[in-house]
Simulated assay, not measured.
Amino acid sequence: MKNKLIFYFFAWLLLLFVVIGAYVMWYNAVGAESIQILKVSSEIKAKTQDSVRLALAKSQLASLSSEESTIEQYFVSTNDVVPFLTQLETTGRSLGTEVRVVSVSATPGTPYGHLSVSLQITGSFNAVLRTLGAIEYEPYDTGITSLTFSTTPATGDATSSSPVWSASAVFSVGTEDKPAVATPLLLPKSTASSTATTSATTTAL
């Protein structure tokens, strides 16, 4: 009887060690898997954050591109200077004035360059003022940097005719490109012809 009790005791003791060993192995395995799961979870979280940041960066880039495109519409491209000057002359004719481009030069600037456009606007006082306002408030980065007025007596019946006004104005116009140095630009054909005619007349005199 005593031997049986000793046998059962050692059997239960052995079983206890086996159970404890199995539990330790299971615990270690679960711990290792938990660590692996945490690692994978951290990687997924990091990649998710990267994806969110990438999507946000793309959204901001698209927004900046749209804003840049909108801003560039307010600047005259250096390739479109002649059409722009022709547009100024057309604006003057539509308002009853003669707009003559005296000179144009490009000056460097940051982040955009500027054109210095010298104009002579001739007509009635009200028409000259309207033309100045129309040019200054064109949908471009435009501002008047210099302005002087002069007037000449009207020809014919002085009681029925108004004097002719002339405004010499210099406009600063933003350009899309940035020239490296100040560079004279070509004038529209109408202006060039007018200048050549004036020079020829002066020489003849």
Rank of each mutant, 00 (worst) to 15 (best):
residue 129 L to W: 14
residue 16 L to C: 13
residue 75 F to Y: 13
residue 141 D to H: 03
residue 145 T to R: 08
residue 66 S to Y: 12
residue 189 K to H: 08
residue 126 N to Y: 15
residue 128 V to G: 00
residue 149 F to V: 03
residue 191 T to Y: 07
residue 168 S to V: 08
residue 184 P to T: 12
residue 176 E to Y: 09
residue 1 M to F: 08
residue 52 V to R: 15
residue 56 L to E: 05
residue 124 S to L: 11
residue 142 T to H: 02
residue 33 E to C: 00
residue 78 T to I: 09
residue 184 P to W: 14
residue 113 G to H: 05
residue 73 Q to V: 00
residue 141 D to M: 08
residue 161 S to F: 06
residue 4 K to W: 04
residue 28 N to Q: 08
residue 173 V to A: 01
residue 59 S to N: 11
residue 120 Q to F: 02
residue 4 K to I: 07
residue 107 T to V: 11
residue 34 S to M: 09
residue 29 A to G: 04
residue 142 T to A: 06
residue 40 V to Q: 15
residue 205 L to Q: 10
residue 157 D to S: 02
residue 52 V to Y: 15
residue 194 S to V: 04
residue 80 D to M: 05
residue 149 F to R: 03
residue 27 Y to A: 13
residue 23 Y to L: 11
residue 33 E to P: 00
residue 73 Q to F: 01
residue 54 L to I: 01
residue 94 S to E: 11
residue 38 L to T: 11
residue 144 I to L: 04
residue 158 A to I: 08
residue 9 F to M: 07
residue 68 E to Q: 12
residue 37 I to W: 09
residue 115 L to V: 08
residue 197 T to C: 09
residue 32 A to V: 09
residue 68 E to I: 09
residue 26 W to A: 12
residue 204 A to C: 14
residue 172 S to D: 05
residue 90 T to A: 14
residue 69 S to A: 15
residue 40 V to H: 15
residue 161 S to I: 01
residue 41 S to Y: 14
residue 143 G to Y: 11
residue 24 V to Y: 13
residue 31 G to E: 14
residue 200 A to I: 11
residue 199 S to G: 04
residue 104 V to Q: 01
residue 171 F to P: 01
residue 51 S to Y: 15
residue 156 G to M: 07
residue 133 G to C: 10
residue 86 T to S: 08
